[in-house]
């Protein structure tokens, strides 16, 4: 049984302008210990999907439908809030984009770590402190017992992100969702943080759902990639396959827009012309059609489903299927 099985996940926000279809039928599975990168343009629904999995979308305005969505055999969309809260932090944890704001400025690092132990394990006092310090040591903080008593503002961005990783992995969850965990950090620190995340996750045999804009990060870190467009996954494959033989026109466009070391700096990056569709008024048929160079008649009124186009590669495109 896979760790996480998501079928036909829909998230709609009720807004004054009408319902926003932020996630529109997402399908994927994630095996234990694997790293899946979720990539796609801004607004494609990556964060909303992950928050829906965590059960953290406020309702109203969010309406989460579809399924079944199974995590460790538990049906996420049907589990009562108390059970979902037991999962959060314990079995599934999340690392945020901005380590500057994701830690409470009024609580010491230690307090924020021990709170997790207290809430889920009832561990307090000395043992909690020892466990937290061990974890701070494991994520590479030089002086854990001092860091325990310090406040977030006393740390640099990279160190805070280490603390966030310590917090997320403290109870050895089987799923870690990292939503652009390195966007706010400088390049050298980015690499360290990703390496650390991957190392710690592997040690616990935790699966990682890595949300990112950065295809460079994907190539270096992920086992598989799912490409999102307008609230759907349009292509899902192993990293190698995806980079070597992308089938969906959107994925191809993304890869072409990636700057290469061997390209002359004068060459303009090829950016996919056009804009993603308005999530309030999604077009009938394939949402990528207005920007697609290879679209055919059928794309205008029929929505392509994710189909296996090659072993280990699923693509939602009529043209790719036919090819």
């Amino acid at each position: 049984m896979p760790l996480l099985e998501i079928h036909d996940l829909h998230v709609t926000f009720r807004t004054p302008e009408g319902p926003v279809h932020a996630v529109d039928g997402v399908d994927f599975t994630l095996e234990r210990g694997r790293t899946l990168a979720l990539v796609g343009e801004s607004g494609s629904g990556k964060s909303v999907s992950s928050l829906a999995l965590m059960g953290l979308l406020p309702s109203p305005p969010a309406i989460v439908r579809g399924g079944p969505c199974l995590f460790e055999g538990i049906s996420l969309l049907e589990a009562p809030e108390a059970e979902r809260r037991r999962l959060r932090g314990n079995r599934m944890a999340m690392i945020f984009q901005d380590p500057m704001t994701a830690l409470n400025p009024f609580l010491t690092i230690g307090r924020q770590l021990t709170e997790v132990l207290e809430v889920h394990r009832g561990v307090e006092g000395r043992p909690a402190r020892a466990r937290a310090e061990q974890m701070l040591h494991d994520v590479g903080l030089a002086d854990p017992s001092r860091a325990f008593d310090q406040y977030p503002h006393e740390f640099s961005g990279g160190m805070r992100q280490r603390v966030m990783i310590a917090m997320a992995l403290l109870l050895e969850p089987s799923l870690v969702i990292a939503d652009e965990p390195t966007t706010g950090l400088d390049v050298t620190v980015q690499a360290q943080i990703l390496a650390l995340l991957k190392e710690r996750a592997q040690k616990n045999e935790a699966a990682v759902l890595l949300i990112t804009h950065d295809l460079g990060v994907v190539a270096g870190t992920a086992d598989e990639v799912a490409v999102m467009y307008a609230g759907r996954i349009v292509e899902h494959a192993d990293v190698d396959t995806l980079f070597r033989a992308p089938r969906h026109p959107y994925t191809r466009g993304l890869l072409q827009s990636l700057p290469r070391l061997d390209s002359t700096p004068k060459v303009e990056l090829s950016v996919i012309p056009g804009h993603p569709p308005d999530p309030v008024r999604l077009p009938a048929g394939c949402p990528f059609r207005p920007r697609c160079r290879v679209a055919v008649e059928r794309c205008a009124h029929e929505r392509p489903a994710l189909q296996e186009v090659a072993p280990g590669q699923r693509t939602a495109c009529f043209v790719a299927e036919g090819a």
């Binding site: 953290l56 037991r86 999962l87 932090g89 944890a93 704001t101 994701a102 609580l107 809430v119 997320a168």
Partner: peptide, 21 residues
């Protein structure tokens, strides 16, 4: 604030967030 969201992802209850955070 993101730290409230972060506390929720760690399974802290509403009352815990109100009184501790």
């Amino acid at each position: 604030a993101e730290f409230v969201q972060a506390a929720r992802t760690m399974g802290v209850s509403h009352l815990g967030i109100i009184f501790r955070h």
